[in-house]
Simulated assay, not measured.
Amino acid sequence: MTTPQHDQADGTVTLESELGPTGRPRRDFPEPEPLASHGPARIIALCNQKGGVGKTTTTINLGATLADYGRRVLAIDFDPQGALSAGLAVRTHDVPTIYDLLLSNKMPVADAIQHTNVAGLDVIPANIDLSAAEVHLVSEVAREQILAGVLRRVAGDYDVILIDCQPSLGLLTVNALTASHGVLIPLECEYFALRGVALLIETIDKVRDRLNPAIKLDGILATMFDSRTLHSREVLERVVEAFGDTVLETVISRTVKFPDATVSGTPITEFAPEHPAANAYRQLARELVFRGAAA
């Protein structure tokens, strides 16, 4: 039997008597209104010191979906592994990268920006050279604010800037947090991934106290969720108990379509536009806009 829907005063639609994976009433967030003008960008760091939790997948697909909704998006590959660059099929060698911008404040940022196959989504790539950046930056004055200075020069051209951080809480990640207005934490629905969240939030609090008073935690995004396993459901339940409404209502389920899309160098929204995973990222983009975390 189909459950009735009710329009809410905030514009969302709630499905009566139907709970989402987070245990809250399942809502469908409204499609964002077109923007009358563009910029300045809201900068969001996608951060988790644990690897393999979906940071890069989320950066690619969230960026592509926001671009589909008419936003101008710049994705920053801030991981020496260059997975974001590979996932969007952009060049990483014999071209300027984020590493070059960090080391030279005279290089025009536009020289490192590459367009992708998704209209409205641009990328600043990275490669293994970025792994040497911490060594070069450690003796710099205001070393934690180098990336902020880079992004300040192009923020007016975009609505959203997404920073795909490396799985570390080192100087590069601190740079990303110092440059950002908000942090999105992708969290794999697995016990060991849960253990590190408190340390990450502690790091965000230290950055807020010492370097960037304006930074906000935009939300915790549950990823790689498998509703068939008790473990996934229990981990998600514990996260919601611990962090409440900070946990986004959108949940990204595990699927083999993500690696398939990565190999093709295409966001899931273009590789398999009707797949539930593509719809989940559209829901995520709508939820972030609804929450005020994105334009």
Rank of each mutant, 00 (worst) to 15 (best):
L248R: 03
G20E: 10
G23R: 01
S131M: 09
K206W: 05
H136Q: 12
D10W: 09
F192S: 13
G87I: 01
R143C: 11
Q8E: 15
F290K: 12
I163F: 03
V13D: 05
N212G: 08
E190T: 05
L194P: 01
G39Q: 11
V240T: 13
H93K: 12
D122R: 06
S17V: 09
T116E: 04
D209N: 08
A278M: 00
G11R: 12
T250H: 11
S232P: 10
M224F: 02
F271Y: 13
Q283T: 13
R153P: 04
T2F: 11
L103I: 09
R291Y: 12
P21E: 08
V174L: 11
V239N: 00
V90Q: 10
F225H: 15
V197L: 15
L221N: 09
V95Q: 09
T2C: 03
D94I: 05
A86V: 08
N127D: 15
N48R: 07
A278F: 00
I43C: 02
Q49G: 10
E134T: 14
L35F: 02
F78P: 06
H93G: 05
H115S: 15
T250C: 14
Y281S: 02
A126S: 14
E241H: 13
L102C: 04
H275W: 00
D164Q: 09
D79Y: 05
L130Q: 01
L147A: 09
S37T: 14
L248S: 04
A75W: 00
F271K: 00
Q81G: 03
